[in-house]
Design a binder for these strands. Sequence first.
DNA 1: GTAGATGTAAAATGATCGTTTTACACTTGG
DNA 2: CCAAGTGTAAAACGATCATTTTACATCTAC
Lengths: 175, 175
Amino acid sequence: MNIKATLIAVSESLFDRHGFTATGMDKLTRGAGISSRTLYKHAGSKSALIASVLSEREKRFLRRLEVTSTAALFKALEDWVRVEGCRNCLFLRAYGETGGDTPEVAEVVLAHKARMIEKIADIVALETGRADDPQLVEQIVVLFEGATAAAVYRGERAVVAAGKAATTLVQRACV
Amino acid sequence: MNIKATLIAVSESLFDRHGFTATGMDKLTRGAGISSRTLYKHAGSKSALIASVLSEREKRFLRRLEVTSTAALFKALEDWVRVEGCRNCLFLRAYGETGGDTPEVAEVVLAHKARMIEKIADIVALETGRADDPQLVEQIVVLFEGATAAAVYRGERAVVAAGKAATTLVQRACV
DNA sequence: GTAGATGTAAAATGATCGTTTTACACTTGG
DNA sequence: CCAAGTGTAAAACGATCATTTTACATCTAC
């Protein structure tokens, strides 16, 4: 019944399915069952709506990634892909569609990526016992990003393979 | 002086910089210095122009990837990123912006990804001596895709790390 | 020398863009 | 009871969308 929550949920699925620029405000109002006046009162503008959608998505995403091992991290991504589908990273898609020129959007995207790196760094540190291994962290970040992107055309296989590669690399660093 | 070639080159850079949907036909005609009539005579339609842009980009991309080792593959990607910048995979961006619903675009994108997998499979087979190692191929594909995506916010570091990870994994399979 | 191809500029097509506004109905708290 | 808040529907905003058309200039080849 919460208008803003349903607006954001509807917007997320439409943006994800058809793209940000290609999804007009009329499709959003129609989808959420509200007037354009109400939409603008709650969302402010299209850019702000996109930023809100991404912020909410990040919360939901991070809730699924509360893990303490690399293997569990990629298992969590596997679950995410199974439940939410794989249409590539919505953050990078938003960044790309706006050319990085919409500050409210760019900020949310880059902040999200920074948080992801931190999270992965924590997991790697916990697992290897080493406080800092930037090269290994970078590799796991790349595998995570690659699994998300490749899943578009390879499906879950990509995530499984990425998880195996990640555990192999982390294992090697534990010796 | 070739009108179609310059049109495609200009379109590629505008699409890459600002996104496909956000780039209108007037910016393309203005950018290429031609009339809209001439644009449509050469390109057919916007979807067809996008498909042409991607086809030309693939040719240029593959020409840079004529290598015979995993290490060289990622070095080539490093060069590509340095020369052409890193705004994420333009093929997946096109696929995402059109929701995969524009057949001419979807076809070029998926065909390109299929060719990339084949190329990587060939390199891996050549390097390991094994005819077929689908899991390892999948891992290198994910690393390649991940390097491209992560380079948006990590720059060349991501590509370097991906290359190191790839050679490590391939080496392991050679023993 | 004229027909055909290839280009231009510019206007018109009807649809759709994001956003604001006008006018009206319903609830809720003082 | 009425003022404030929150919602609706619908129209209007000027801009821009992809595409087509009309009218005209320039080259090239037979």
